[in-house]
Design a protein around this nucleic acid. Structure first.
Lengths: 238, 238
DNA sequence: ATTAATCGTGTCCATCGGACACAGTTAACG
DNA sequence: CGTTAACTGTGTCCGATGGACACGATTAAT
């Protein structure tokens, strides 16, 4: 369990000094990260092992340890590369609300492109420049509102929590045919069998099934959060 | 990777038929779950292994497989036992807002008592009766508001997302002296060094440090969510 | 040409989750 | 009161994992 934080910082933030002597490195951090991402996208984070990544790159697993101190650091690199820099929008919305909504939707899309990032970003960890860039964008969207520094960060944390929550439940629904889809059926069966023990839940479930379209949870929560922020911001402006 | 969902349902929802013949079982699911929880509370979920749990109970690891099909199911039992049934409140608040706030605070407290539940509840999974009981309570708190079934569930998901988000960042702060506390310092150093690249973030950080009291992120987000729900509910009532 | 740094690799280890066979224990049935 | 069938706990074995370490090959600076 060598989670050397200092080493992780060096890996994520550089500098990456080129070796002066010795054979040319056949790999580099970027290729390694991309190989890991490729595997994680296809088979989930559980499918990512040193040997698996090494095989993808055509080398032995021990070759990887020349570049990365351990698996934890590899995953950190993968997250940083997978999330990438915040995509610059051509027409930047003017108000804080539009900017934050855009930002959240971008983040949500990024999480859905790489669902394993959920598993990889559990618990305390070191963030890289790309990830901090995202944070910067969100916090700066709230500049000019009457919110204090702590409040601006709290608001961003709130949004990130929602993105993560929805990503998780979206993964549970999953595309039809996958083993994840089986879960929906199991839950439905459970609700039918235990309906009397959970009347409100069963009613809500039935009503939701009848109304048809799910997948509104994302927009619902996003608008609630933005509404809640608007209430506070309006009240600060007066 | 035998994640037999049907078996998990049977374990969590019963029935647990007593064996008619053969030696008395020396263990039961409850003791096993509690042993696992004890370890996870002390050393995190990573410290929970079959051998470790078995040692805690004074048996061999293979003895556990008589009760639990695999580690995934053991973790499911641990989560169910750790979260426990929703604690009945003596004076139940009258309005939906008070009820939801109470509920969220209880859930937050439960997550903080067992931080590893964050790691254990990633991704699609089968929920047990205790967990569904919590959901039931939250959904029923929204009965009588003009919200539809899907909306009531979306609102609960939104709250859970916030609880999880804050639990995660609370764990990052951690008590002083722990290796987690080191992260705050690293992040602070990073902000100082890269301040120009992330001006808004650095400003918010500095302002937050100056204002002193952090730990408001929880209440901040909770009130924003409730405010946002109130906006919708008010508008539905008219 | 020599040397020192850096490379990729092979070998070794502890630990993990899990499969399986085996012997001991116990309750039901004749 | 035997017999038997079911069930228990355990020991042994396996493949895969993350990682330590030493080795020989390669290359740039001297």
């Amino acid at each position: 369990m060598g989670d050397n934080h200092a080493e992780t910082v060096r890996l994520l933030w550089g500098p990456h000094t080129k070796p002066s002597r010795g054979p040319r490195p056949t790999l580099d951090l970027d290729r390694i990260a991309r190989a890991g991402i490729e595997i994680a996208d296809a088979e989930g984070l559980a499918g990512v092992s040193m040997q698996r990544v090494a095989a993808q790159l055509g080398v032995t697993k021990m070759a990887l340890y020349r570049y990365v101190p351990g698996k934890a650091e590899l995953v950190a690199l993968m997250v940083e590369a997978a999330i990438g820099p915040y995509p610059a929008q051509d027409p930047q919305p003017s108000g804080w609300r539009g900017q934050l909504a855009d930002w959240a939707r971008c983040l949500f899309a990024a999480f859905q492109r790489h669902p394993w990032t959920l598993d990889a970003t559990i618990g305390p960890r070191v963030m890289g420049p790309a990830e901090l860039g995202w944070m910067e964008r969100a916090v700066s969207a709230l500049d000019g509102t009457g919110l204090g520094g702590a409040e601006r960060m709290d608001a961003v944390v709130l949004l990130v929590g929602h993105v993560r929550g929805i990503t998780q439940q979206a993964r549970a629904a999953g595309p039809a045919g996958t083993p994840e889809a089986e879960l929906s059926g199991i839950l439905a069966d459970l609700m039918r069998a235990q309906g009397e023990r959970f009347p409100a839940l069963a009613a809500a479930f039935a009503s939701a099934e009848q109304t048809g379209g799910r997948d509104q949870a994302w927009e619902f929560g996003l608008q609630r959060i933005l509404d809640g922020l608007a209430v506070l911001i309006d009240q600060r402006e007066h």
